[in-house]
Design a protein around this nucleic acid. Structure first.
Lengths: 301, 301
DNA sequence: CTGATGATGTGGTCAGACCACATAAGTGTA
DNA sequence: TACACTTATGTGGTCTGACCACATCATCAG
């Protein structure tokens, strides 16, 4: 059955980004430059795998053929295969592992949160996304999440546990904000909507550095922390009580309140208010969070 | 000034995923295996570029050092550099071009829509995203878009032009749906929120194949097309008249109505209603759209 | 039956070599 | 001098071959 995974050009044709060069088949008369320029080798590989995913030939849990087999099967070099696999890995579609045995090689996983996070994080870093827009979008989504949870009386056990964890002991700002992120994410997860959950995870990840950095500038952090914690309790109470309108309002106030207090949305984009300071425009916070490797595939989802 | 772009370990330390091996600097005492296993070479490259983006050293329009320079500068092989650059390219952060001169090489662009699209499209293909969840999320976002546009009386000229284009002449289903997608996207763009716009583009792209496929099963397509077109006009009218509630309601009805009619949301995920047919579970539509290369970076944004 | 030991196959990485391409510099004319 | 042509030069794109570390599995001695 592995043969199907390597069929580059099935007789039925229609495969995207087929490579006519380097192919040993003399029947196809090269086809001058049909639509656009010739597809790049790594795009061929990516298209091939995407087609097999879309056709259901590959499903989560399945193993991809080895890099060498894919290369020879598609008529490309192994390095091109690797570039495509690297993309798939970062997007959260496959997981690679060295060694031998059933769990080695590239395996389909379909974990979108990691890819969403790195995408949004990098776009914010590269000034493609304004922090203010990230916050606004999060506001829209999380308000809808709270409303839906209240309407459906969804299970919020995970959120409550995180709420309790935030209440126990004295936490540093970073520790609290970590739990805070998990709390908000657990609300999204409670909807059962994976798209929503992954998007929320990405949005949060994109501005995480800014949030943490801003907490240092809050005058009375313990007081702010207590207020946020109380707001969390109120939100959860409104959800559990089945009051959609109140839940949505409280979420909106919670989010916009914090960002207004910390003025996070003032930083980090092209059209930024220039009145804040005279440093080189839009310096990013820290820029080096030790716990922030290039790929922080969150294990949350 | 290119020197800064190659500084792998600035004296201030703190760089993520620093590679102590192959480095010719004997000052750093190797640091056994600090947190986890050694970072992969391509992660080193990615982290290095991300750090420079976050620090503002790299901005849109800037050129990255050449692949060979980057490789020697970071002490990795060129293939590892390429894997990192490939990821950045797919995520819409850089654009590469062969040849010489100022427009060649890798250039920071920060175009998020393409990356968002391929991410969501692949996740749907790999069954990480349920089509129903994509539609639900789109419903939430686009409802908010319509409400905001009506509240702010935003400019909707682009949307109106597309509306007119959809009205002219007789269009095939595919042509109409293409304009339909652009119409909805233009609404998102009108908000000026790039995050929202990119997300909407990704969501649409993820289910585009399903939408087109489903249109073939609509019994009376010209009638459906006229109805959709009328709904478009009503939505735009509500927005231009500044009636947020009505605009939001009409958008919600428009979207959920179409997907209910075509039953698109019945297909394409793990927990799918098994009663529909007895084909191999969840066959994707077509799976090969000739106009659908692996990377369809939309030029819309 | 058990434990050590090698064979096998995986991804991860690097070095080197080409190619196609686009610009820039040089060269030759008119 | 001005213009056309030719030749470097440097870019990404690709392939090949070679290692390495690692994890499993088959083998074999005890």
């Amino acid at each position: 059955m592995d043969d199907a995974l390597l069929d580059a050009e099935p007789a039925s044709a229609g495969n995207i980004a087929a490579r006519s060069d380097t192919a040993t088949d003399p029947t196809t008369p090269v086809a001058p430059p049909p639509p656009a320029a010739t597809a790049k080798a790594w795009e061929t590989v990516l298209a091939h795998i995407e087609a097999q995913l879309a056709a259901g030939i590959l499903s989560p849990g399945d193993r991809l053929p080895g890099e060498r087999a894919l290369a020879t099967g598609l008529g490309v070099g192994r390095s091109s295969v690797r570039e495509a696999l690297r993309v798939l890995e970062v997007l959260g579609l496959i997981r690679t592992q060295t060694g031998s045995g059933p769990s080695s090689g590239a395996i389909i996983v379909a974990r979108p949160s990691g890819g969403m996070s790195i995408l949004m994080r990098l776009q914010v870093a590269a000034q493609g996304f304004a922090v203010a827009d990230v916050v606004k979008t999060r506001l829209v989504l999380e308000t809808a999440v709270a409303r839906e949870l209240a309407e459906t009386r969804a299970h919020t056990a995970a959120a409550r546990e995180l709420l309790d964890a935030m209440g126990r002991g004295t936490l540093t700002d970073t520790e609290f904000l970590l739990l805070d992120a998990q709390f908000h994410l657990s609300l999204a997860e409670a909807t059962g909507n994976d798209v929503l959950t992954a998007t929320m995870a990405g949005l949060r990840s994109a501005i995480e550095a800014y949030v943490i950095d801003a907490s240092a500038h809050v005058p009375d952090w313990p007081r702010t922390m207590r207020r946020l914690q109380q707001e969390h309790r109120d939100i959860l109470a409104a959800i559990d009580a089945g009051r959609p309108g109140e839940a949505a309002e409280r979420v909106a106030a919670h989010i916009s309140g914090y960002y207004a207090e910390t003025r996070i949305t003032d930083a980090g984009h092209h059209h930024t208010s220039p009145t804040t300071s005279d440093r080189p425009p839009e310096m990013a916070p820290h820029s080096t969070l030790a716990s922030h490797p290039a790929l922080a595939h969150p294990t949350t989802t």
